[in-house]
Design a protein around this nucleic acid. Structure first.
Length: 810
RNA sequence: GCCGAAGUGGCGGAACCGGUAGACGCGCCGGACUCAAAAUCCGGUGGCCUUCGGGUCGUGUGGGUUCGAGUCCCACCUUCGGCACCA
């Protein structure tokens, strides 16, 4: 018998699958009704900024198992692949290597695709796309224009996060702890004209996860990110200036405890507050100083800073005059950019009050507690009551929230309000390697969208693409100068490019209809395939990419371009692949290269290992011994199946192996299809193989071997296809998924567990149709049980049919 | 601080609806084959006690519910992840 040789069988079968178009799926002809058996299996597409890492091995193998399983289970499976080829990672990689991003990107795409074919992933390559391809980004631009027309894309000057190293604006999502997520540089603040998508328009709907099968942790991450807070907007009067200043508060019950008022340094009202104030110079100096400080410096600073304006605001509940301060602990872009400060019930306000010697007034206390005026009490629970709050004293905190807002509302000074942490998505990038924004600026006509028929606005192949503060495209005079689409006079192009996350916000729709050159996609086809039934990827994209994609889906639905509102019906987030106890990273030097291990062990053992080592939603550990074990299993399977093919008759009397085979079919089908427990499915096949090993010449050994091979196929398609052929069968990839015969899942006898007072004392074989009385009788007969009864009275007998008898004695 | 997930042998993990804890694999121990080793195959493998029949303890900690708890409830500890000057 020959030995298992991964390279030979991989090279043998991959061309067969390709020639037979095994993993290709056609689009439905027009007018096809919805197909409840369609399955859209998708994994997050890779950045071609380098080569694939072990995490990709895991993600795409998970998708692969589903694709094979559902296809063979009689479903119509769409399983495409593409490349997220625009954006910072690719550009930074290009800058490091000194070659043009197009060149490195396209070279990487070729290499990655070759590797993907080498691993044997069941992908419909006819649908391949790259987001930097004009045939793709033409439609990214087209969709941007639709959002622009709908008012969902707009321009505004705003303070933005600026990375001094990458020389570009960053989205909030790309800032981690005040540093650039990509390069780690400390982020600065700049005021620039920027493009935004109005993600906040859907803030509330984005919090609805009821229809989604997503893991709790991912839902929680998005919830945190969107950050909904309920409260009220309350108007404070600045008599001297004849203006009303609104504040947002989640604690209207503490209004009587407000002792001062704080405005963010960037608040537009600051100028008016300053003008004519005796503290004018100090105010201007303070605003200047805070503007110079980075976001991180402000947060890190232990000491509260601020300046008194000399102005006062009137508290609408009690007409108290509150001094107005300016302080940088109040954020300009959350709520209204101004707060009422209640030092007794807010830690930050308390610190500020201490620092500047401002009064503290307690107005909410635990039920029955003594009032200690001036003591900071920041804890908060629903059974606290109000004190010192006029007619609201004595009310519970939740009651008071309602009552005070209602009362103020009737006087026109407040209304219930909801605030969200999520901001609109700033997607302008002062970088070269991205999708151009199809906008022209004309002196006469202002902001003019590029007409659809002029799309795509091609990204020019410029030599000098290095970032230097202003967008690289701005230096390209020839490209920048363009006739205004409206008046024809000379105008200038938008020189910023789009954030990569715009490209990946709709790629899953393009896969449905990837060659359409009249529209981004035909709605009918997208509605046929969509939404994605299984979305697989790292949880690190749970907040950024997946919120943007949901935003796009809702917006496109409102525009009538697609027929559904949620892009990903089921999301399964996988963990990291770790090595030596740590996340793999180049800096740690613990990176295992997928192409090397695939070359060394073969694609199938590596695929099996990635899924066997643990549940797919947890971090997994790469281990040399572990992969050796998997190789051992594949070789063992190889030997046993070959032996069986030679020794076991084509058909034979079914026996214990047949029973085990049917039980394994039921288990594996349930594990993959319902439980998504990919590791235990492999373990179940191993058990079957272990039983087969006991007697490969048994009359039903061939059936057991065929079953094992068929069930392991989604994980190890090459070795399974080869062994299937050696068993005298043809084309396992096209073979229907096996179905367990219920008759074989029934057993004539079972092992009855006998407990005395809940402790196992004996196990006996009993007929499956024995009555409860017979089971109890059998239990009492057991000599081992008798020893524990010890003449005591049996007070109760618990019977669990087909399982156990528990004798309760006392 | 808020939100979420998770704590089970030497290790990764299994136990799905409250019913035999430790499936499957790694590692380790013993045996076969071999001049020998590797590979492969066969067997064993939670701790303690044992007259070798078995007994007893055991799923982060402490309580509780139950005939019966890894699983349910309460309190706590630890680890990991997300958010965080968000009013």
């Amino acid at each position: 018998m020959d030995k298992y040789d991964a390279e030979t069988i991989e090279a043998k079968w991959q061309p067969v699958w390709e020639a037979e178009r095994a993993f290709h799926v056609d689009n439905p002809p027009p007018g096809t009704p919805p197909n409840p058996r369609k399955r859209y299996v998708l994994e997050q597409l890779p950045y071609p900024s380098g080569s694939l890492h072990m995490g990709h091995m895991l993600v795409y193998t998970l998708g692969d198992v589903r694709a094979h399983f559902y296809r063979r289970s009689g479903h119509e499976v769409l399983r495409p692949m593409g490349f997220d080829s625009f954006g910072l990672p690719a550009e930074n990689a290009a800058i490091r290597s000194g070659t043009h991003p197009r060149e490195t990107t396209e070279r990487n795409i070729v290499a990655i695709r070759r590797f993907m074919e080498r691993v044997g992933w069941a992908i419909d390559w006819d649908r391949e796309l790259s987001t930097h391809d004009p045939a793709y980004y033409r439609w990214t631009q087209w969709l941007f224009l639709r959002l622009y027309e709908a008012g969902l894309a707009y321009r505004k000057a705003s303070p933005v996060k600026w990375c001094p190293n990458d020389q570009t604006v960053l989205a909030n999502e790309q800032v981690k702890d005040g540093r650039c997520e990509r390069c780690g540089a400390v982020v600065e603040s700049r005021n620039l004209e920027q493009w935004f998508f109005k993600t906040t328009a859907y803030a509330d709907e984005l919090l609805h996860f009821e229809s989604l099968r997503w893991s709790e942790r991912v839902v929680a991450m998005q919830r945190n990110w969107i950050g909904r807070s309920e409260g009220a907007d309350v108007l404070f009067r600045v008599e001297e200036l004849d203006i009303d200043l609104p504040v947002f508060t989640t604690r209207p019950d503490t209004l009587y405890g407000a002792t001062f008022f704080v405005v963010a340094p960037e608040h537009p009202i600051v100028e008016r507050l300053a003008q004519g104030s005796p503290h004018e110079e100090e105010i201007r100096e303070y605003v200047r100083r805070t503007a110079a400080r980075t976001v991180e410096e402000r947060v890190e600073a232990k000491e509260r800073t601020g300046v008194f304006t000399g102005r006062f605001a009137t508290n609408p509940v009690n007409e108290a005059r509150l001094p107005i301060w300016i302080a940088d602990y109040v954020l300009s872009d959350y709520g209204t950019g101004a707060i009422m400060a209640v030092p007794a019930h807010d830690e930050r306000d308390f610190e500020f009050a201490q620092r500047f010697d401002l009064p503290v007034k307690t107005v909410v206390v635990p039920q029955g507690a003594e009032v200690e005026p001036g003591a900071a009490f920041v804890g908060h629970s629903d059974d606290e009551v109000l004190v010192d709050s006029a007619q609201f004293s004595g009310l519970s905190s939740p009651e008071a929230k309602r009552a005070i807002v209602e009362w103020l509302e009737s006087r026109g000074r407040a209304r219930p309000a909801t605030s969200y942490r999520i901001r609109d998505w700033g997607f302008s990038r002062q970088r070269y390697w991205g999708c151009p924004i199809p906008i022209v600026y004309c002196d006469d006509d202002g902001v003019v969208p590029v007409p659809d028929e002029d799309l795509p606005v091609l990204l020019p192949d410029i030599e000098d693409y290095l970032p230097k503060g202003k967008p690289p495209l701005a230096s390209n005079e020839e490209w920048m100068r363009v006739p205004c689409p409206r008046c024809g006079r000379e105008a200038r192009r938008e020189a910023d490019t789009m954030d990569t996350f715009v490209d990946s916000s709709w790629y899953f729709l393009r896969y449905c209809d990837p060659h359409n050159d009249r529209a981004p996609f035909a709605r009918e086809i997208v509605d046929y395939w969509g939404p994605v039934d299984f979305y697989q990827g790292g949880v690190d994209h749970a907040t950024v990419h997946m919120i943007y994609a949901r935003f796009f889906q809702k917006a496109l639905n409102d525009l009538g371009l697609v027929g559904f509102r949620e892009p990903f019906a089921h999301f399964h987030g996988n963990g990291w692949v770790k090595y030596a106890g740590a996340k793999m990273s180049k800096s740690r030097g613990n990176v295992i290269a997928p192409d090397e291990v695939v070359a060394r062990y073969g694609a199938d053992p590596v695929r099996l290992y990635m899924l066997f080592v643990g549940p797919a939603d947890q971090d997994i550990e790469w281990s040399e011994e572990g992969i050796e074990g998997m190789l051992r299993f594949v070789r063992r399977l190889w030997r046993l199946v070959n032996e069986t093919a030679a020794a076991s008759p084509r058909t034979g009397e079914p026996g214990e192996l047949t029973r085990k085979a049917h039980a394994t079919i039921a288990k594996v089908t349930d594990d993959i299809g319902r439980r998504e427990s990919f590791n235990t499915a492999i373990a179940a096949v191993m058990e079957l193989v272990n039983e087969l090993a006991a007697d490969t010449s048994a009359p039903d050994a061939r059936f057991a071997a065929e079953t094992a091979v068929s069930l392991i196929q989604p994980y190890a398609p090459h070795v399974a296809e080869e062994l299937w052929q050696r068993l005298g069968r043809e084309r396992l990839w096209a073979e229907p998924w096996p179905v367990a015969d219920p008759a074989w899942l029934e057993r004539a006898t079972f092992e009855l567990v006998i407990q005395v007072n809940g402790r196992v004392r004996d196990r006996v074989q009993v007929s499956s149709d024995a009555s409860e009385e017979e089971l109890v009788a059998r239990a009492k007969e057991s000599p081992k049980v008798r020893a524990h009864l010890d003449g005591k009275e049996i007070r109760q007998a618990i019977v669990v049919p087909r399982k156990l008898v528990n004798l309760v004695v006392g």
